[in-house]
Amino acid sequence: MSSVASLHNVIKRYVRGKQTIEVLHQLDLEVPSGQFLALMGPSGSGKTTLLNLIGGLDRPTAGEVIVAGERIDQLSSGQLAKWRARHVGFVFQFYNLMPMLSAERNIELPLLLTSLSSAQRKRNVAAALELVGLTTHAKHKPSELSGGQQQRVAIARALIADPTLLVCDEPTGDLDRASASDILGLIQTLNRQQGKAVIMVTHDQKAADYASRILHVDKGQLVEAADRSAATAA
């Protein structure tokens, strides 16, 4: 099976004042296409840093990062922005919706970076709204939606441009248990039915249980928890 993400000897250091902190130490990772990977670990372990590297939001200090078939650690800032638009859908803990835009306008945002016509964009937005069960809330602003509904809008926005990879940073961290389970079910369905690769950072073991693979990030190293593909596929 081909890899959606391959990291080799990745080192990430941050300089804070006179101090240099190495967050990731010569890390290697292979994420096969279509996998739902959960990254767990305590605060400061480097899991979000790792997610940012895979999502093209940050660059490694050393090592190779190949995602969606492209060596992204060598791309310029502008190239990286275009690459992200093509290949990555982001879901954030606090949804990060544009407060002044309606649900459908928020979802449409990534399509503004494509050459699709207005009519095509409208059709795609309607389909994405239907997929996340929010057809009747298309005109609602984020402030008029519950947390769970806002995260559904964020998921629709992440999916609308048909990315290769869905990157989720604590997607249920701000939701109650019922909404969280709802959202995780939706992400799992997308992974299974559309074969969309998902990489999710979470603190929550119950959330991680929805993934087909769990990795623990500990002191800048990866520790395989278990291959759950057989179990979750059942």
């Binding site: 502008g78 093509r86 982001f90 945002l109 990534p110 970076l113 926005r157």
Partner: peptide
Amino acid sequence: SLEIATLRAIGFGS
């Protein structure tokens, strides 16, 4: 800044 960062993450250019 969060709004700008989100747009940049989605792929909007500087």
